[in-house]
Design a binder for these strands. Structure first.
Lengths: 191, 191
DNA sequence: CAGTATAGTAAACAAATGTTTACTTTGTCA
DNA sequence: TGACAAAGTAAACATTTGTTTACTATACTG
């Protein structure tokens, strides 16, 4: 059994249980008879930078549970050496303040020119102050909607704009509440 | 110190160290003098469904580290009761097979009509078989690019198409290699 | 094929884990 | 103000943690 399989095994374990297996659990997983054998493979992973020890506890590193991020350049694709790769989690990439954010599945075509399609999921940050140009989750005259936050030059009044020429700007007749600023957009492609 | 602060504290701890703090660590964090006090708050969280116990180990649930996902409906916004909320992680939402995927920062405007803008990050799934219509990471005549995978009706030949009318279709003169299918698109908005 | 490094077994280790018991403080509300 | 529940202290508990020692099997390598 090559060690890469073992790595895949505890990665699967980590994704399922959201924690690393203990030595005894790995012992069962890898069909070892001695914890020394586990100790060996774990410390090999530590040397490779996949795991690390803090406060005498073994924890995964970004290299363990993140995905490598590459940059696309015009001529050719940059396959970086393992040690130069940047590893990333989509959650930490997109979500600034997890305690005051939520996800929202968008419906409608009013933001297509901003690259937000029907069915996309957006990250709504509730504590962020909107500045003109931001895409916001707003409640305009008691109706919830996703639009661009704008401010009238003369009267300094806030209004909303769609990112689709077929819709006119929206000026509130009674009230305009901004419930959050969109910090990210996520789209899952077919299958 | 209200208990919601303590929850925020161990959420921060979890995001920083990718594991839950032990009782002794929480003892320090919360400035408790007895592990019994820790035990109490932990088991309150377990009852609330934020944590759970498997194999005598305390682990976080989706409710703990995920974000709630809401659906947008035309008239009004559905604020669901806590127990009806669906919790989600962007990583598990977008990434099907973490072991054979990577992230790629896109440059160029050739896919704007597919809602993929310059600077967006896409999830490339290496083991997925492309079907016509899929957006793929391809190497066409030694040049890497992100395009729509197509097949010629008559000759059954594969070619590439941009999602931007200003570019013509790309027919390979020598070779066309598909290195992966795009399974998701991610865009981080300003700041 | 002999020599040697690598990978594994078996058992013992201190230290840390989460739980429990018995008791005390704090806060709430009639 | 008095009663009572909730929250915390202090200490002891059995288990489990990851590490280590000494020894053995396996697999390369020249």
């Amino acid at each position: 059994m090559p060690s890469v399989d073992r790595l895949a095994m505890i990665k699967r374990f980590y994704r399922k249980y959201n924690r690393l297996p203990s030595y005894s659990e790995m012992l069962r997983l890898f069909h070892f008879a001695s914890k020394k054998a586990v100790h060996l493979v774990v410390h090999k992973w530590i040397e490779e930078g996949l795991l690390k020890i803090d406060s005498n506890k073994i924890t995964p590193t970004l290299r363990f549970f993140g995905l490598p991020l590459f940059g696309m350049i015009k001529a050719g694709f940059p396959i970086l050496a393992e040690e130069d790769r940047q590893y990333l989690t989509l959650d930490e990439y997109l979500i600034n303040d997890p305690n005051s954010s939520f996800l929202l599945k968008v419906s409608g075509d009013s933001m297509i020119n901003a690259g937000i399609f029907d069915g996309d999921v957006v990250v709504v940050e509730q504590k962020r102050e909107p500045v003109p140009g931001d895409i916001v989750l707003a409640e305009i005259d008691r109706e919830w909607t996703l639009k661009i936050y704008k401010k009238d030059r003369r009267h300094r009044l806030a209004y909303l704009e769609a990112a689709n020429p077929k819709y006119p700007p929206f000026y509130p007749t009674q009230e305009l509440k901004i419930h959050g600023v969109i910090g990210g957009v996520v789209r899952k492609l077919a299958n």
